[in-house]
Design a binder for these strands. Structure first.
Length: 304
DNA sequence: AGCTTCGCCTGCTTGC
DNA sequence: TGCAAGCAGGCGAAGC
């Protein structure tokens, strides 16, 4: 499931291939893959690519301005979307079942969008239209703890749900939210209002987790692939996601799985103490830290 | 307005 | 073995 590190990896790889190229032709097989308000992808023919960037979990390709024409191509990979780079004409002949879009270049190379579950989307439009379509909050590298704390204050929903809300903070998905909350010692069911006190720790944990995942070129559980088809490497470093029944790498307790906001949620019941048990009268909530707990990982830096 | 649930969609896994 | 149900989840819409 492409979240910020996977999308960042794809963006970095596309930067090696796309800028400076002219699009010869572009096509999409099924119009339901367009985000509403999108121009036709065929309108990109003749466009010159200037850059590739990431906005939250979306890939944004910038094109040289042409009067009256779209100058942005947005690709959101959803859950199972892939962008494949095919450098040689000979390698683009195959026609996989879930190939939905092709963008072709003069030397025969091709960028291809594949998405078995079709949860992703494509949007073609102006920079202004893209800004309107991608209404989302800043990602963890773009905001400070005061801003996050302000967004969490007076929110009663579980911190897990709030961190998944792209309008509030972008880039985190189910896998990394679980990892971040574990690293920050915060129970997924803690209310936003209470978690606001730990905004600094949450942001630190998010940046640390995402940075390490980017360095590992993302997490491949099942579908995620890089532009050349290779997998990411971060899955072997996950602490809690998908590890229910296994031992917490920090304290050795058994990792539990619950469902929060319809999402499978993995956490350590000892390191991430239940909110109810933490709420002692007259005591500041410390989000489940206990004296018996093992030391934090070496790369963890407290916010204060 | 905030929060939860649902539906979209396909493929793999589980259960009978 | 075969079939149906269950499950996965990013995101927007609907419902409370």
């Amino acid at each position: 499931m492409p979240e910020l590190p996977e999308v960042e990896t794809v963006v970095r790889e596309l930067r090696e291939h796309l800028p400076g190229r002219d699009i010869i032709r572009a096509s999409l097989t099924a119009s339901d893959l367009y985000r509403r308000g999108s121009a036709k992808i065929s309108a990109l023919a003749g466009a010159h690519i200037e850059g590739v960037n990431r906005r939250g979990k979306a890939i944004v390709v910038s094109l040289r301005a042409r009067p009256g024409k779209a100058d942005r191509l947005v690709v959101h990979l959803g859950m199972t979307g892939q962008l494949e780079w095919k450098a040689s004409p000979g390698s683009v002949r195959d026609n996989p079942k879930h190939l939905h879009a092709r963008i072709g270049f003069a030397d025969g190379s091709q960028l291809r969008y594949v998405d078995p579950r079709r949860f992703g989307f494509i949007f073609v439009g102006t920079a202004a239209a893209v800004a309107e379509t991608l209404k989302m909050g800043p990602d963890p590298f773009e905001m400070d703890s005061a801003a996050l704390a302000a967004k969490l204050t007076r929110r009663s929903a579980p911190i897990k749900s709030l961190l998944l809300d792209q309008h509030l903070i972008s880039g985190l998905g189910n896998i990394y939210v679980d990892e971040v909350l574990h690293l920050a010692h915060i129970h997924p069911l803690l209310s936003g209002d209470r978690a606001a006190k730990e905004a600094g720790a949450i942001l630190e944990a998010a940046r640390s987790t995402l940075s390490r995942a980017i360095a590992a070129r993302g997490t491949t559980i099942r579908d995620y692939r890089r532009t050349d088809g290779a997998t990411g490497e971060f899955q072997i470093k996950l602490s809690v996601y998908g590890r229910d029944g296994e031992k917490c790498p920090r304290c050795g307790s058994s990792i539990k799985r619950i469902v929060v906001s319809q999402r499978g949620t993995h956490f350590c019941p000892r390191c991430q103490r239940a909110p109810r048990l933490s709420a002692r009268k007259g005591e500041t909530l410390r989000a489940g830290r206990s004296r018996r707990e093992a030391p934090r990982p070496a790369d963890y830096k407290p916010s204060r």
